[in-house]
């Protein structure tokens, strides 16, 4: 019986620890899988807007019979969007590093 208060104290401590743990925001882990995910994301996030831009430009050129005017303009927009994506991804990574 003399052990009981100590046990209860231990239990209380564990409950408090668990509660604190649950209150904490999710910590971003940097496992190798996440690094893979980030690397693959950066590669395609840069290229994808260029392809989409060229496709939109091609369709507009076909509609207005303008040879490759819109392809050039939308490819430039795509390139800018790709750079913007990379810039945002880099900013997010910097935020994550600062949080850690």
């Amino acid at each position: 019986m003399a052990q009981l208060p100590h046990d209860i104290q231990q239990l209380d401590k564990r409950i408090q620890n668990l509660k604190q743990k649950q209150k904490r925001p999710h910590k971003k882990s940097t496992s190798s899988v996440q690094i893979w995910a980030k690397a693959l994301r950066l590669a395609t996030d840069f290229v994808a807007p260029v392809f989409v831009g060229i496709s939109i430009g091609y369709l507009l050129d076909k509609c207005f019979n303008t040879r490759i005017l819109f392809v050039f303009v939308w490819a430039a927009f795509g390139l800018a969007a790709g750079m913007l994506n990379i810039w945002r991804a880099a900013q997010n990574m910097e935020k994550d590093i600062n949080k850690e």
Partner: peptide
């Protein structure tokens, strides 16, 4: 005129990049 097409492309490229990958 510069930002809206760039941001629109950035949005439209998301499903494209998910699909291709």
């Amino acid at each position: 005129p510069l930002i809206i097409p760039v941001e629109t492309l950035s949005l439209l490229a998301k499903p494209f990049s998910l699909t291709i990958r």
